[in-house]
Amino acid sequence: MSLSHSLPKKLIVLFLVFYFVVGVYAHFYIINQEEVYLLYSWDLYTKVPPRIQTEFTILIHEFEGKRLENPIIFERARGVLYSSLTEYRHSTYNKTNIQNIVRLLAPSIMHDKTKEIERLRMELEKTFLSHPVVYEVVEITFNPIERWKNGRFININSLGIFTSQVF
């Protein structure tokens, strides 16, 4: 496309250049602060997640007074925790909420923020762990494909063991 006297053409070109430049700038700006509204870098799925990842989750050790032979990771514990669910309890089970709470709870434990720990534990135990449960907050290190295929972790780092207080 050759630039000529045409004003619409020049404006279109300027707009495209502007959007590209500001979008790229927005990609770096977002690292420190929130996104620039209306301008976006479209850098979706650009960075490949690492081969070795860490995550916070919970392991279930005891349920209704029964010690489990092997602790079950939360994402596989639904059948154990909710084998006799009422419809109401079923509806409060929200995996994303649980994940979000655990992601906040774990750092609070690591930084010994007592009030925050109590608050988040209550949130966690209120919404879904409504039976007497002994659970452990852990930091797991894993290769995602290995974890998916055979449930194996590279390392499990315990952050604390708790007994649920809400029935």
């Binding site: 870098s41 479209w42 850098d43 799925y45 650009t46």
Partner: peptide, 14 residues
Amino acid sequence: LTYSMSGIGKLLHA
């Protein structure tokens, strides 16, 4: 252009 921005971002991060 928006699709190209996404693609170029992928290449740069690669």
